[in-house]
Each structure stands twice: as structure tokens, then as C-alpha cells.
């Protein structure tokens, strides 16, 4: 029974995704980003059919398990673009580090300014970092890991959907800058978006995502300590 259920949910997820990416390819509107529309459709379907997330994950988990090797596979564009990477190393590292600090402190200060409690502030803090790392940071600091995973998603969709508008509004020109910006602000969802701007953008984005995960896991606790010590 569970095997059948798993199969149904896997096929449902894949089917919804393929349908939504066809729609996206046809109209090319940033708001039709498949990661967003497929999630939305799936959530509406599950809520409508009164299926809990836990039940869905009997199948969903199998796709989720491929997220690990999917992150590993980013080593490939990184390797192909290694020469560009070495040439631009100061720019990649400097940009990512600056962006990470700006991301953490802007979220933190805004949340404090609007009077959110310590638990919320600490859950907002690691939002620009990839989920797996962000929930660890948040949990260790005294934030709420499941809230953080939603915040990380919102940060991800901001870059993945808003990216094209942000690029225009702030006149970002270089492919490297676009990639580093997407990876630092919107982690893996931003990196998936960077695929649309070319190989250089993806590899820059995956470097930025990786560097901000590593640096963030060190800077995050320091920032929290400064604030609440």
C-alpha cells in the first residue's frame, strides 16, 4: 500500500513539475517559475484532497533524497568554469562575504525594528543560506528550524522570481555579478535561476552559495552573540 502511495506521489510531483515547466517555457514570465507554480499547485491539490504533508512525503521523500546528489552535481559547472573562477576569486569571495553580512544584518535589524521577538529574529538571521545549513544555525542559536526553512524559501523565491527585476532596477550588468548575487541572496533556488543566465552565472552562483554556507555557519553565531549577549 505504501509503495503504491509513494509511487502516486512521486508521479504527481514529477507530472506537476513537467507541466509547469512547459507553461514556463511557453510564456517565460518570472512569476511562472516552475519551482513556485508546481509547489503552489501541489499544495492546493493536497489541501483540497485533505492529504497531510506527512502522507505526501511517503513519496516526496524519494525526490527529496536526490537533493543531496543534486547539490553535489554543482561541482560539474564549477569545474568547467574553474579558470573563470580563479581569475575572479577576489570578486567572488569579496562579493559573497559583503552580501552575507548585508543579508544577515538587514534581516536582523528590520525584524528588531518591527518588534519581533528573539525567536523570530534568530529564525530570520540565516535566511539567505541554503536550507540544510540554515536550519542547523537557527536551531543552534535558539530560533525555530521549521520557521527558518520557510524563511529560507521566501528568500530563495525573492531572487528566483524577482531576480530579473532586481537586475534591471539596480542595473546589474555582468553575468558574474548576477550569479554571485543570486547565489548569495537566494542560495540553491537562486542558483537554479542562474542556469538561465549561462554557465558562468551558475558556477559563480554555486560558489557564492557554498561560500556563504561555510562562512555563514561561523558568522551567524557571532552575530547572534553580539545581539543577545
Amino acid at each position: 500500500m505504501n509503495v503504491l502511495l509513494a509511487l502516486v506521489f512521486i508521479l504527481l510531483s514529477v507530472g506537476v513539475y513537467l507541466l509547469m515547466s512547459m507553461l514556463y517555457k511557453r510564456y517565460r514570465l518570472p512569476v511562472l517559475l516552475p519551482a513556485l507554480t508546481a509547489t503552489f499547485t501541489l499544495v492546493v491539490l493536497l489541501l483540497g484532497l485533505h492529504i497531510s504533508y506527512e502522507t505526501y512525503m511517503i513519496g516526496g521523500e524519494w525526490i527529496n533524497r536526490l537533493l543531496g546528489p543534486a547539490v553535489v552535481s554543482l561541482a560539474y559547472p564549477l569545474y568547467k568554469q574553474r579558470h573563470v573562477l580563479w581569475q575572479n576569486l577576489p570578486a567572488v569571495l569579496g562579493g559573497t562575504f559583503t552580501g552575507l553580512l548585508v543579508g544577515m544584518f538587514s534581516g536582523l535589524l528590520l525584524a528588531l525594528w518591527f518588534g519581533f521577538s528573539k525567536m523570530y529574529v534568530l529564525s530570520v538571521l540565516p535566511k539567505s543560506i541554503t536550507t540544510a545549513v540554515a536550519i542547523q544555525i537557527s536551531g543552534n542559536l535558539g530560533g525555530d528550524a521549521s520557521l527558518t526553512s520557510v524563511f529560507v524559501m521566501i528568500a530563495g523565491f525573492t531572487g528566483a522570481i524577482g531576480g530579473p527585476y532586481i537586475i534591471k532596477l539596480f542595473r546589474i550588468r555582468g553575468e558574474s555579478g548576477i550569479g554571485i548575487g543570486l547565489g548569495t541572496a537566494s542560495h540553491a533556488l537562486g542558483t537554479a535561476k542562474a542556469l538561465e543566465y549561462g554557465e558562468r552565472a551558475v558556477s559563480m552562483s554555486s560558489v557564492a552559495m557554498t561560500v556563504s554556507a561555510i562562512v555563514g555557519s561561523i558568522v551567524g553565531p557571532v552575530a547572534a552573540w553580539m545581539l543577545y549577549h
Binding site: 534581516g107 528590520l110 518591527f114
Partner: peptide, 19 residues
């Protein structure tokens, strides 16, 4: 709103500082 604003600032600052 806070998350969106902060993420937009992050992306813009990152891109421009790296360039």
C-alpha cells in the same frame, strides 16, 4: 515583507560589490 526587502538589498549589494 522584511524577508523580501532584505533579500533584494542582499542581491543588489552583492552583485555590485563583486563587480
Amino acid at each position: 515583507g522584511i524577508l523580501v526587502v532584505s533579500s533584494v538589498i542582499t542581491m543588489a549589494v552583492t552583485a555590485h560589490s563583486s563587480e
